[in-house]
Amino acid sequence: MALNTVDARGRACPEPVVLTRNALGQFPLGVQVILDNTTARDNVKRFAESKGYQVVAKNDGEDFVLVITK
């Protein structure tokens, strides 16, 4: 399944979490989030899991991709 993508690279926390929250509000089935630092990766992951989503984290070069699905 192709997922909508949130590009939160370069965003300081808590912005990546806010963007993810807003995106999940719009696309409740899931999104994929691109991040460029471990703090944002962990915060977004914790947020999505607390909302009952499954999160798979992948490394993409210097970046991190979180696949967030129901």
């Binding site: 192709a2 909508n4 993508t5 949130v6 590009d7 939160a8 806010v18 719009q26 696309f27 994929q32």
Partner: peptide, 13 residues
């Protein structure tokens, strides 16, 4: 980001 999150969400990417 208030309205449509244009630029941050790419449909069908």
């Amino acid at each position: 980001s208030d309205v449509t999150m244009k630029g941050d969400v790419r449909l069908g990417a």
